[in-house]
Simulated assay, not measured.
Amino acid sequence: MTALDLHADPVDLTAALVDIPSESRSEKAIADAVEEALRSQAPHLEVVRNGDAVLARTNLGRPSRVVLAGHLDTVPENANLPSSRTDDGAILRGLGTVDMKSGDAVFLHLAATLPEPDRDITFVFYDCEEIDASLNGLGRIQREVPEWLRGDLAIVGEPSNGSIEAGCQGTMRIDVTTTGARAHTARGWMGVNAIHALAEPLRRLEAYEPRVVDIDGLTYREGLQAVRIGGGVAGNVVPDEAVLGVNHRFAPDRDVDQAEAHLRELFDGYDVTVVDASPSARPGLSEPAAKELVAAAGGVATAKLGWTDVARFSALGMPAVNFGPGDPTLAHTQGEQVSVAEIRRVADALRTFLSAGA
């Protein structure tokens, strides 16, 4: 088993985590290492194992509790292991440096080196975030030990360029289906072309003007895009069915039901099927703990234009933000890399926040 030094510089700890392969569904080795390190180096924490997730928390009776959550898994390797550094040492490269082992390293370092925080802290290191949502370790934890996800604020260590990204957009995929009648293309007038019938839904998409919504002083820009089109039987047959796939990103002032109603109204007259949906998350920056975190991180917060697991915490009634080192545009790429200075800056900001509770 790889030994992790939680008291080491969080940059070195990031490299050590990166060097433990942990593709989704293969997190046992890294979960074992994290569990052993927490049990041996953070005796002030209560530690439990849940599948390949590791949970730890203080029980100091503080007036507020913060949940720090990070996933241990990565996408498959792409010739980007083991970790390496630039010659000047300013950049750490490797799979997971961005998404999101640098965030995990910051949390683990704080778990061991902050035994008397002014806020109680729950640490959640979970599995299977990078694959189907039904397998996400947070969902299993919520079903089996839900008390471990309760708090006044959740901080998910997803890459955010070292700044606060609050809330998140919801996402919904639908299929818009048209039907027609088959015929030989030599006698096309005898059929009804279902692909041609998609012209009107596409026109509605082209004319659509997405909303721009202000919530807690943050600007969320919605989106609606065709992402797939399918149809056709053979090269000499008028098609009798066609499907237009559409993705909708909606602001946190709408829930899933409202987003679905909006799309059904937009595509009124057509067969609409919801393929999948994930809820949005309100930023909650008006909550005292969130305000204090923003102040500790430099006083600036932006809207999260995308979906992350903050939505799971928001659904539990908690304000939730993304705050972690790394450029999210580098996530899942062969060239994942993170600034050493940014890892340390995030660690310092969280230490300040957790040491100055209400």
Rank of each mutant, 00 (worst) to 15 (best):
E287K: 09
V98M: 09
R204D: 10
L149Y: 10
E260C: 07
E292V: 04
D32M: 13
D216Q: 07
G170K: 03
D104T: 12
L316R: 01
E222G: 13
A234E: 13
G306V: 13
G245P: 07
D276L: 07
R203G: 08
E241H: 00
I343H: 06
R351T: 15
A105M: 06
R249C: 08
G94K: 07
L354N: 06
G103M: 10
A356W: 09
L81G: 11
G245K: 08
S355Y: 07
V227G: 13
F125T: 00
F353P: 00
L138Y: 02
V192Q: 12
A181Y: 14
A281Y: 08
S314C: 03
N247P: 09
E158W: 12
N80S: 01
L38A: 05
E46N: 13
D87F: 05
E209I: 03
N247V: 04
M318I: 09
A183N: 02
L316G: 00
A295T: 06
L285I: 03
G306W: 02
L13K: 14
S102Q: 05
L55P: 01
Q258E: 00
K28G: 11
C168F: 01
A296F: 02
E35H: 06
G284W: 02
S160N: 01
T329R: 12
L149N: 01
P239V: 07
V275W: 00
V300P: 09
S83K: 11
P328S: 11
G299N: 03
A90Q: 04
L305Y: 10
I215P: 02
A53E: 13
E265L: 04
W307K: 02
A331I: 06
L55Y: 03
P252A: 12
V246I: 12
V275D: 02
A105H: 00
R62Q: 15
S163Q: 15
L81V: 13
S163E: 15
E200W: 12
N193F: 06
G217P: 12
E165G: 03
A183Y: 12
G230W: 03
A69F: 00
D104Y: 08
R93T: 10
E23S: 15
E158C: 08
P319M: 00
L149T: 08
S83T: 06
A166C: 02
P146I: 08
D88Y: 05
T177M: 00
R39W: 11
G61P: 06
A16S: 15
R57Q: 02
R345P: 00
A207L: 07
G245W: 02
Q225T: 14
D257G: 01
A347R: 07
N161M: 05
L350K: 15
E158P: 04
R312A: 07
G96S: 14
T113P: 15
